[in-house]
């Protein structure tokens, strides 16, 4: 920004060293990343989400997500008169460019960011015929694009609609929880870009992670708990009409 040339010359080498260490996978935050020491998930704080679409755009930039498919997206719910069975839901282009303005209207509105739930008992990895999708030892549901047949059975098996067949690669594709970032001490692209802190990457195996305190003190739910998928994306203050 307002750096003088002198300041830059002093600061740059240190920055360069720090940045290179991030790229090399040995940032100060997690020297020698060990898979067995982590169990990743995410916290979505519904009352904080303003539906700006920053997360969707950040995800598409970070992960080269093809147009028309989404690793994460935002839905806007509108529930009127307590009719929980038929909420009106929209997600124009995944909420990528935000949502149309609403003048004062009856009922309640809220935004629900969605992404892969990185289920511990994931129905999608269960059905893969060849072992091309799996849960990593640190709890991330991942696709091996070099091994996937593209049979789409996993897409059918995901109750949340989080998978798609990549139109060019012809293999199943999905959220990797920015595995290339979280293993280097960074947070996911969507969390990095979220302006309100509605999304938080959590490490359930890290005793210092604030998630433990949060789970103890808030009313937290996962999506479609009846599916018993062991979902690890926790929603704070989730309305019962969300599915």
């Amino acid at each position: 920004m307002n750096l003088s040339r002198r300041q830059m010359l002093i600061l740059l080498p240190a920055a360069a060293v720090a940045w290179k260490s991030v790229l090399a996978g040995t940032p100060e935050d997690s020297p020698n990343y060990k898979m067995s020491e982590h169990w990743w998930g995410m916290l979505i704080d519904i009352p904080k989400c303003i539906g700006c679409g920053n997360c969707v755009r950040a995800c598409q930039t970070e992960n080269d997500v093809p147009d028309g498919n989404f690793r994460t997206w935002v839905e806007r719910y509108h529930v009127t008169d307590g009719d929980m069975v038929s909420p009106q839901v929209i997600s124009p282009d995944g909420g990528k460019e935000g949502f149309p303005v609403v003048q004062e209207d009856a009922g309640k509105y809220f935004f629900v960011p969605k992404l892969c739930n990185h289920c511990a008992d994931s129905p999608c990895t269960q059905v893969c015929p060849v072992g091309a999708t799996f849960v990593t030892p640190d709890g991330v549901v991942m696709v091996d694009p070099k091994y996937c047949l593209g049979c789409a059975y996993c897409v059918q098996a995901c109750p949340y609609g989080c998978r798609y067949i990549h139109p060019e690669k012809k293999v199943a594709d999905k959220c990797t929880l920015c595995y290339h970032r979280i293993t280097k001490g960074l947070t996911t692209a969507c969390c990095e870009a979220c302006p309100t802190g509605a999304r938080q990457l959590v490490d359930l195996k890290n005793p210092k992670d604030p998630i433990h305190e949060f789970l103890k003190t808030h009313s937290v739910q996962v999506l479609k708990p009846q599916m018993a998928t062991g979902a690890k994306v926790y929603y704070n203050d989730l309305d019962g009409s969300v599915r």
């Binding site: 269960q126 059905v127 015929p129 072992g131 091994y147 593209g150 049979c151 012809k170």
Partner: peptide, 19 residues
């Protein structure tokens, strides 16, 4: 999507997959 990878079904069959 990748027909030529189909033999993987025989080489590394996933025991929990009906397919």
């Amino acid at each position: 999507g990748h027909p030529f990878r189909s033999p993987e079904m025989y080489f590394t069959p996933h025991s929990t997959s009906a397919m």
